[in-house]
């Protein structure tokens, strides 16, 4: 409620004209939304016209496949390894995964001699390729087995550190499937890289 707006030129209109134009604008918008935009973009077809025009779900499959392509650039692989750890030995085993890539995993530890379950110290973690020295632990502690799914929160190498603090030699057996192409084994100061086929 002020007079300053008078310096702006406004159209000479009347109430009827404005109401008519506003209704027209609203109806036009509602019509285009329900006939074209909702069926094509959101796969919602309130009038059934989208189906008839063949535009229903136009953006749905594209959206999904682009998302999938982005995430899973690497091929799908399976990997099974075991390590023998003497008392006070340790090993690290990791896979390079891009951000959003998934991996299913399971590992278990047994005493090499008797085959009984045996606990080790472990740290399941990732190291970033993008941010220097950035590490994130997904799970750590003492245990004789663990399994689950990892969706890599960032691009980098992701995997396990196992250390045998017991008095007997143990065997760690790991099985994974996921979207990686190689594995890295860190042991005794050496890195062993293996291209998975």
């Amino acid at each position: 409620m002020n007079t300053e707006t008078s310096q702006i030129v406004v159209l000479q209109t009347n109430k009827r004209k404005v109401l008519l134009a506003s209704s027209l604008a609203f109806i036009l918008a509602a019509a285009i939304l329900s006939v074209f935009i909702l069926p094509a973009e959101f796969n919602r077809d309130p009038l059934g016209v989208g189906e008839a025009l063949g535009i229903s779900g136009l953006s749905q499959p594209g959206a999904v496949s682009v998302e999938t392509l982005n995430k899973e650039e690497a091929a799908f692989h399976q990997d099974s390894v075991s390590f023998q750890l003497l008392p006070f030995e340790f090993v690290e085993y990791k896979y390079p995964l891009s951000k959003g890539s998934s991996m299913l995993y399971h590992w278990a530890v047994t005493k090499s001699r008797s085959g009984e379950a045996s606990a080790v110290s472990f740290d399941f973690h990732g190291e970033s390729h993008e941010v220097e020295d950035y590490e994130e632990s997904y799970s750590e502690g003492e245990g004789d087995h663990e399994g689950g799914t990892l969706i890599a929160p960032f691009e980098g190498i992701h995997g396990w550190f196992w250390a045998n603090h017991g008095a007997e030699a143990v065997t760690v057996t790991l099985s994974t499937t996921g979207f990686y192409t190689e594995s890295l084994e860190f042991r005794d100061g050496f890195v062993k890289k293996q291209i998975l086929k």
Binding site: L11, A21, L24, A25, A29, L33
Partner: peptide
Amino acid sequence: FAANTVLMSLGFMLAGYQFS
């Protein structure tokens, strides 16, 4: 006047689109 009617309609469309 017609241009502003179209503008208003586009505004409603954008709003409906984003709300959907």
